[in-house]
Amino acid sequence: MPVTYVNIKWPDDKTDQVYSPSSVVEEYFKSGQEITVEEFLSTCNTALGEASERVRQKYGYACTSAQAESHRIHELCQTYDHSKKIKIVSIK
């Protein structure tokens, strides 16, 4: 399960990196994609939930880092107008 990072640019041009314990996030995000904060939050929750579940299937326990990252993203998204756009810069 390769650790994968989604590099993003918030609506205020701040950059950030979203951690995932699984490359499954590549099924949800594409480099260059622009989506609303609301859509990003929803998709992030789904992708990180699936990543955590993959860890559970392989190791027998959920990934608390994925859960913590989902919470961090939720908190950050609350500081932006949900109709503003987030850019997916790259996925590594």
Rank of each mutant, 00 (worst) to 15 (best):
N45R: 15
G60M: 12
A51T: 07
Q67W: 06
A66W: 05
D81E: 06
R54V: 04
A47R: 12
T46G: 00
G49K: 05
H71Y: 14
R72P: 01
K58P: 05
Q67L: 08
L41P: 11
T43H: 02
E75C: 08
H74V: 04
A66I: 01
Q78I: 08
D81G: 01
L48C: 12
E50H: 10
S83E: 13
E75V: 05
Q78P: 13
S83C: 09
N45P: 01
K58C: 08
S65Q: 15
A62S: 11
R54Q: 11
E53V: 12
K58M: 10
S65I: 13
R56S: 03
D81V: 06
L41Q: 06
S83R: 15
A66V: 00
A62G: 08
A47F: 10
L48K: 01
N45L: 05
L76T: 13
L48M: 03
H82K: 14
R56V: 09
S83K: 15
I73W: 02
F40L: 07
A62T: 12
Y80C: 07
H82R: 11
T64I: 02
S52T: 06
S83P: 06
D81M: 03
Q57V: 03
T79A: 11
Y80R: 04
S70I: 02
H71K: 15
R72H: 02
F40C: 04
Y61R: 03
L41F: 04
N45A: 13
L48A: 08
T79I: 04
V55G: 01
R56Q: 06
H71L: 15
H82L: 08
E75M: 10
L76M: 15
L76Q: 14
L76F: 12
Y59V: 14
I73V: 01
I73T: 07
K58W: 07
T79Q: 05
S70Y: 06
E50Y: 00
